[in-house]
Design a protein around this nucleic acid. Structure first.
Length: 274
DNA sequence: AATCGTTCCTGATAGC
DNA sequence: TGCTATCAGGAACGAT
């Protein structure tokens, strides 16, 4: 399930594949556009024709493809979305939702088994509410200790829910929320306002650290995630608690527990995490 | 204003 | 072994 490190991996690979930028768009096909697009599909197609992508960036878990006229095509992979740019166009995947055709014959494919992924088109200067609602980027210089402290103090949530809330810190999902709390030795049901100065320092250090480490390993693949080169990530080998309920804690051998918070699984060590 | 519960979707799998 | 009910979860949305 793509979270910040997985999305960052896709963005980097698309940037470096050499086919995405300054390559004129000669066609766009969008399948089953009813639910997952914020804009009429035929208008997007007409709007993109003849233009080129100038840059690819990431905001939280959103992939932003910037056009030469400053319009943007924005993609959220949600659970099973995959974005890849192929030089050889043969592909019979039945879950292709969108194809962008380039002049040199390569294709940008968006595949999504469960159709939870989303595509947005934004004209220059337009607002996109889903982006405006996002909180601080945990890998940016704006993610300061003071910012984190203020966020924690100004809400009243269980720590797991806090880390998952995209309007607070943007980009952390279910896997990294559990992992961060384990490494910080904080119980997932602790209230945000109960975090001590020492724990605050640890959170501020660990959050960027684990996200960067996962990026280094090209993200985590539990079942579905494939990067832009259609490969699995490697970071699942280094997960400490996620998905490991019933197994023993890597630190103290206590059995790892699974609980449900906001209808989402949380994994933690009841001995290490206080 | 902040937080909570429901909903979307379909392949994988737990459990009988 | 084979079937079916449940689970997986990001985030918009409406409710509280």
């Amino acid at each position: 399930m793509p979270e910040l490190p997985e999305v960052e991996t896709v963005v980097r690979q698309l940037l470096h594949c050499g086919r995405m930028l300054n390559n004129p768009i000669t066609g766009v096909k969008i399948f089953r556009p009813q639910r997952w697009i914020n804009y009429p599909a035929d208008k997007i197609a007409i709007r993109l024709m003849g233009h080129v992508f100038k840059n690819i960036t990431r905001r939280a878990k959103f992939i932003i493809l910037s056009l030469d006229d400053e319009a943007e095509l924005i993609i959220h992979l949600r659970m099973t979305g995959k974005l890849m740019c192929q030089a050889t166009p043969i592909d019979d995947d039945p879950y292709i939702r969108e194809i962008i055709y380039f002049q040199d014959g390569s294709q940008l494919l968006f595949k999504d088994t469960r159709t939870l992924g989303r595509l947005y088109f934004k004209e220059p200067g337009e607002k996109l509410p889903v982006l405006d609602r996002l909180g601080v980027e945990p890998l940016s210089f704006q993610f300061t200790r003071e910012k984190l402290q203020a966020l924690l103090y100004h809400c009243n949530l269980e720590m797991k829910s806090f880390l998952m809330d995209q309007s607070k810190i943007a980009g952390i999902g279910n896997i990294y929320a559990s992992e961060i709390l384990f490494l910080c030795q904080i119980h997932p049901q602790r209230n945000t306002r109960s975090i001590t100065a020492e724990e605050l320092n640890r959170l501020h250090e660990i959050i960027p650290e684990i996200l960067n480490r996962s990026i280094k390993f090209k993200g985590t693949t539990i079942a579905d995630f494939r990067n832009a080169e259609n490969q699995s990530g490697e970071f699942q080998k280094y997960l400490q608690v996620y998905g490991n309920h019933g197994e023993s804690c890597p630190i103290c051998q206590t059995e790892i527990q699974r609980i449900v918070q906001k209808q989402r699984s949380t994994f933690f060590c009841p001995n290490c995490q206080k």
